[in-house]
């Protein structure tokens, strides 16, 4: 990011943001999964996954949205979570939310 435009010409928004319950749960998941007692992911892998987002998606995605995207990608890549079971689970939750699956 160092010196990169357009960010290097933008004002710094100094508003203090509180974390949402979502933010806290995602932060907790990352800490628990990367703790040496589990060692299921590393922050390096998370950064790599986040940097792979297309630039426009990167810009509109919230900080902890990026994190959970990375956690999901890494857990599937390591087969801790099966890709198919994740897809099915997401479809169930979508239906529960009242959206067309």
């Amino acid at each position: 990011m160092g010196g990169i435009e357009p960010f290097a010409s933008q004002p710094i928004d100094r508003a203090e943001h509180e974390l949402s319950e979502f933010d806290k749960r995602v932060d907790a998941l990352v800490n628990l999964l990367s703790h040496p007692s589990r060692a299921l992911m590393r922050v390096d892998e998370m950064r790599n996954s986040i940097e792979s987002l297309p630039p426009d998606e990167y810009d509109r995605t919230l900080y902890y949205e990026k994190w959970i995207h990375a956690v999901a990608e890494i857990m599937v890549a390591k087969d801790v979570i099966g890709e198919e079971e994740l897809v099915l689970k997401l479809a169930d939750l979508k239906e529960e939310d009242g959206e067309e699956a």
Partner: peptide, 12 residues
């Protein structure tokens, strides 16, 4: 993303 968090958490 809210659903993704819940799905990952519940599966784990």
């Amino acid at each position: 993303y809210a659903r993704l968090e819940r799905a990952v958490r519940e599966l784990l």
